[in-house]
Amino acid sequence: MTTIADRLANAQHRIEQAAQISSRNANEIQLLAVSKTKPNSDILAAYTAGQRRFGENYVQEGESKVNALKDCCPEIEWHFIGPLQSNKTKIIASHFHWMHTVSREKIASRLNEQRPKEMPPLNICIQINISGEASKSGATPEELESLASKIEQMPNLILRGLMAIPTATSDKQLQTDEFQQLQTLYQELKSLYPRVDTLSMGMSNDLEQAIAQGSTMVRIGSAIFGERDKP
């Protein structure tokens, strides 16, 4: 029977292979294990196997996991990667290390105001709606520079980079084109803010393409934990 540790090792091997093909250093690419809807026991199994970065999509579920695992898994780095309503920003500000889906100044401002003073600044990725789909969240490419400038002025946030979800399609060229667009925006952002170092793109089904286009963080769920359960 294939274990979570086995699947985690396989995911890391895929990252290493993709990096080699693209003449990149695999150490530049972080694996974010997407544990949404999965039980704490699965996270503990991955943690025991050496995984430290975990991504959650749902606010209450994420809060519950952070609280439940903080004593037994003290080195966990929690990333929030789902949509966030403004009335729930305090939970993210006070429990998570990273927030990947900031696309509006209002959300950023609330996160900044509600970040506890005893915690380090919250790491922020701006989500870009790279596919232009109305059903997806994210700032437009045209809004990026203004939003980044505002986040840079917020002392309790630290701008780390960009995040996007490409079109769900079997058209590999379309996905590659979207990854390339995000890479271009990332380089432009990095030229303005040299501290920026994170390009969060690529998931279980397209991580190889994402790495070929410069991803520094791939978000892998089903390839590690199996198909998603209902929340």
Results as ranks from 00 to 15, higher is better:
Ala68Thr: 12
Ile165Asp: 11
Gln183Tyr: 05
Thr48Pro: 04
Gln30Asn: 14
Met119Thr: 13
Ile124Lys: 02
Glu208Leu: 01
Cys125Leu: 14
Ser137Phe: 15
Gln209Tyr: 05
Thr89Glu: 06
Glu56Asn: 05
Ala45Leu: 07
Ala45Ser: 08
Gln209Ile: 06
Gly221Ile: 04
Phe96Val: 07
Leu8Lys: 15
Ala18His: 01
Glu16Phe: 03
Ala11Trp: 03
Gln12Cys: 10
Glu208Cys: 06
Ile220Leu: 05
Pro194Ile: 14
Ile165Trp: 05
Lys150Cys: 04
Met217Cys: 07
Phe225Leu: 05
Ile4Val: 15
Ala93Tyr: 12
Leu8His: 13
Lys90Gln: 12
Asn67Trp: 13
Val34Gln: 07
Met203Lys: 04
Asp171Cys: 05
Ser191Asn: 15
Lys65Phe: 11
Ala108Pro: 07
Gly62Cys: 07
Thr216Asp: 10
Glu113Cys: 03
Arg110Pro: 01
Lys88Ile: 01
Gln20Asp: 07
Gln187Gly: 01
Pro39Leu: 06
Thr140Ala: 00
Met154Phe: 06
Ser204Pro: 04
Met201Ser: 08
Leu32Val: 09
Ser103Thr: 08
Gly50Lys: 08
Lys190Phe: 09
Asn156Thr: 10
Val102Asn: 03
Ile224Gly: 03
Gln12Val: 04
Lys150Phe: 03
Ser35Asp: 01
Ser191Thr: 14
Ile4Trp: 13
Lys150Thr: 09
Ala49Tyr: 10
His100Lys: 07
Leu189Glu: 08
Glu145Ile: 15
Ser146Trp: 03
Ile81Phe: 02
Lys36Asn: 07
Thr101Ser: 15
Tyr193Phe: 15
Ala212Gly: 08
Pro121Phe: 09
Ser215Leu: 06
Tyr47Trp: 09
Gln153Thr: 13
Asp197His: 13
Gly62Lys: 00
Glu105Leu: 12
Ile92Phe: 08
Ser64Val: 11
Ile4Glu: 05
Thr89Gly: 09
Ala148Tyr: 01
Arg110Cys: 07
